[in-house]
Nucleic acid binder design. Structure first.
Length: 108
DNA sequence: CGATTGACCGCTA
DNA sequence: TTAGCGGCCAATC
């Protein structure tokens, strides 16, 4: 577990209920959009899916994306998001506001 | 050490 | 609206 991973988990934990963020957004928060792929890769190795709400991380175009090993457009992920108040229609998130990370220190 | 691959993103056609 | 292409960084082969 390196610093970047820890930072990612922290950021994801900051996302409040009913709000979502994107892989690219998290990458940007880390200081480099290029980390987007890495973010996804690390999500796939999510050590604690219970404590880390990785279901609140979606694609930038509104598609839900993956959740655990359930694959793309996972109904479980969609169900969780809807349950938290996120509007989803036809597998797409409707009128979603990306959560804006703030007061985040890279060396934290 | 070079090539390939990923739960991605954004711009073009 | 969908498809294709290049670019990003790190891990793996």
């Amino acid at each position: 577990m390196n610093e970047i991973e820890k930072s990612i988990w922290k950021l994801v934990l900051q996302i409040p209920r009913g709000r979502v963020s994107t892989y690219g957004d998290i990458a940007s928060a880390l200081g480099n959009i290029g980390y987007s792929r890495l973010v996804g890769k690390i999500m796939s190795t999510n050590p604690e899916p219970i404590t880390v709400p990785c279901h609140r991380v979606v694609y930038s175009d509104g598609r839900v994306g993956w959740y655990l090993g359930l694959g793309h457009g996972s109904v479980t992920k969609i169900a969780l998001l809807e349950k938290e108040g996120v509007d989803i229609n036809e597998g797409r998130i409707v009128n979603f506001e990306k959560y804006r990370f703030k007061d985040f220190n890279l060396d934290a």
